[in-house]
């Protein structure tokens, strides 16, 4: 039985990794044909690299979520 705390952390982790993958493969990396075309010197979406970094950060924030998730029926 996975606790609600673990679910939340997993959700955050997945969201972070998904953002990383999407921003790296789809938004930032200019792939296409011909590969040296000048359109590919730009990210598909401006600030995609920022999204990637935010993705990395969200993924690691999962740990904080896991620890700080309020305790059900706890003392506080």
């Amino acid at each position: 039985m996975i606790s609600r705390r673990a679910w939340a952390a997993l959700l955050v982790l997945t969201a972070g990794i998904a953002l990383m993958v999407v921003s790296y493969l789809v938004l930032a990396a200019p792939w296409g044909f011909p590969p040296e075309s000048e359109k590919f010197s730009n990210p598909r979406l401006a600030f995609a690299p920022l999204l990637f970094i935010i993705g990395v950060m969200i993924a690691f924030l999962a740990a904080v979520v896991y620890e700080l998730w309020p305790q059900r029926g706890g003392k506080e």
Binding site: E36, S37, E38, S41, N42, P43
Partner: peptide
């Protein structure tokens, strides 16, 4: 030079 430019400032035109 185009490959390594971190921000796409150096680029090759068609």
């Amino acid at each position: 030079c185009v490959k390594v430019c971190p921000v796409g400032a150096r680029y090759k035109r068609d």
